[in-house]
Amino acid sequence: MNDKTIEKTTPAGVDRTSSQGRTTIADTVVSKIAGIAAREVNGVHALGGGASRAVGALRDRIPGSSTNHAQGISVEVGEKETAIDIQLVAEYGVAISDLASGIRSNVISSVERMVGLTVVEVNIEIQDIYIESEDDSDASISEPRVQ
């Protein structure tokens, strides 16, 4: 048997062909894996910039819709390597350097393990800091300030 694998990039993503058949991995697969892996890290409040989070919030309100796991993630996928850009909102109080390190570690291990591509870089852009305000807590149910 010939176990030789040939890899090439197609418009749909990475195409791996062996003597037993072909496997195509779309760019969106890499985006979703990276998005899920980034969300698993404590200190990540949300992924995406302001506009993409607004669209995501609208999508979540539509009955029967699904969560966009690739929100805030963009990828470049080559034959054997990928580069990933992540936009996110961090929770207040989290050390951003530790957060970025944790995200990189989790995203790289998840993508390399699940897809088999080498992750050459993970660029992280902190778009905002989430601060839990009184409006977000249950304490805001008390009497209003103005009557």
Rank of each mutant, 00 (worst) to 15 (best):
Q20R: 12
G21A: 08
G21M: 14
G21D: 15
G21C: 01
R22L: 10
T23D: 08
T23K: 11
T28W: 15
S31A: 15
K32W: 08
G35S: 10
G35R: 10
I36N: 13
I36A: 12
A37R: 12
A37T: 09
R39P: 05
R39S: 11
R39E: 15
E40G: 05
V41R: 03
N42T: 15
H45W: 13
H45L: 07
A46H: 05
A46F: 00
A46C: 08
L47H: 08
L47E: 09
G48Y: 04
A51Y: 13
A51C: 02
A51P: 07
S52G: 03
A54N: 07
A54K: 13
G56N: 06
A57G: 09
A57N: 06
L58K: 12
R59F: 03
D60S: 00
R61E: 04
R61N: 06
R61C: 11
R61L: 08
I62P: 06
P63T: 15
S65H: 00
S65D: 09
S66F: 11
H69F: 04
H69C: 04
H69K: 06
A70V: 08
Q71L: 01
Q71P: 03
G72P: 08
G72M: 11
I73H: 06
I73Y: 09
S74T: 04
S74V: 01
E76M: 04
E76A: 10
V77Y: 05
G78Y: 15
E79R: 15
E79G: 00
E79I: 15
E79F: 14
K80V: 13
E81Q: 00
E81D: 13
T82V: 07
A83H: 08
I84L: 13
I84A: 02
I84G: 07
Q87I: 07
V89L: 00
V89W: 05
V89E: 07
A90R: 13
Y92V: 14
G93P: 03
G93W: 06
G93D: 00
V94T: 15
I96K: 03
I96H: 01
I96C: 04
I96F: 05
S97A: 03
D98R: 11
G102M: 11
I103N: 08
I103K: 02
V107I: 00
V111S: 04
V111C: 00
E112F: 06
E112P: 01
M114C: 06
M114A: 12
M114D: 11
V115D: 02
L117R: 13
L117C: 06
T118C: 01
V119T: 09
V120M: 14
E121C: 08
V122F: 13
V122C: 05
N123I: 02
